[in-house]
Amino acid sequence: MNKKIIFMFLLAIALQSCESVKEYQKSKINDTEMALSAKKTEKFENTFQLYREASSGANGGKTGGGCGCN
């Protein structure tokens, strides 16, 4: 329960302190390294972690199924 509260707290803080950023101000946000997703080269790293560790999910992928993994 504590962890859920911390998660919600972080979410509230993040949303509270947001600035309205115009499109022409997004040159840094639009940098490829700033993408809020795993890189193409992380694809197979994530796959082997899915096999070698008991956890999965919350990284834009799946939590299980589709292969003989966890």
Binding site: F7, A14, K26, I29
Partner: peptide, 17 residues
């Protein structure tokens, strides 16, 4: 996902499996 300012952005992800 949320742009916080010109230099910073975040994403909150939750799954139920």
């Amino acid at each position: 996902s949320q742009v916080i300012n010109k230099n910073f952005q975040m994403a909150f992800l939750a799954d139920i499996g």
